[in-house]
Amino acid sequence: MFIRKISLLAAIVTTLLPTMARAQDADTALKRIQQTKAVTIGFRESAAPFAYLDEGRQASGYSVAICNRIAQEIGRKLNIPHIEIRYVPVTPQTRIPLIANGTIDIECGTTVNSLGRQEQVDFSYAVALAEGRLLVKKNSGIQDLSDLNGKIIALAAGTTAERYVRAVLDRTKINVRVLQVRDNAEGLLAVNSRRVDAFVNDAVLLGGVLRTAQNKDDLAIVGKPLSFEQVAFMVGKNNSGLLTIINGTIARMLASGDLHRLYDQWITPYGVPIDGAVDALFKIEAIAE
């Protein structure tokens, strides 16, 4: 009897859902912004120096600073004088679904541009480069991934680190146990409480989380870079209008040197100054009018 009811319900749901899912028009985000006179920005609460919740509970950081400029630019382009900026906290696990379902217009955190993700979302120009490294306790003696055989590592769920680390582990036949953590603060906590031996993530982010630690001197960021990736902002698919404004803003900020100043303010202190690859990236992206 129950089974009949349930299967009836299941049948109704499965026939209804596809018809309810509507075809998407182009530039939905811009239309949404025009309607609500507000830009909704997804930001990370624990990804300093790119994006974090500061002591005054405000969204803050390098990516957030750039996106504030982008929001002003959107307001200018759409003729909305005092455009409102709404901040929605996201985690590595929620950011892509929230872009895909339109809850946020732009994600301004520290998302790495990858081909897999491009199937679901679009990316802006890169605003920084990322290299995966290890956060460890100094006295652990761990210098590189190869020292981790038989150890435990923490990876943030929903990050690219999850994939490239697993790939390296499979290739090199290193046997480690993986603990999934929600974000960088929890990764630090796991290392500090000796629950894990290492936390793998982008070196700048590790530096950011290290700065909040009470016992900075006991911790170190070690290892050969495990990855070379681009950090960029995400928007939904079919939003070329919005993407044009975002990329235009980034290019103009690069040409005027504003972006370099923000970079120096936020990222350079973490040991990744504007030289080599970052310098090349910024020169290439400073597209002329």
Binding site: I96, A157, G158, L179, Q180, V181, R182
Partner: peptide
């Protein structure tokens, strides 16, 4: 929430990898 990949976590993981949430 503490990292056990039980049923709900796995369905979320699949959503994350495939983007087929439904």
């Amino acid at each position: 929430t503490i990292g056990v990949l039980e049923l709900t976590a796995q369905s979320r993981q699949i959503e994350n990898f495939t983007f087929h949430g439904f």
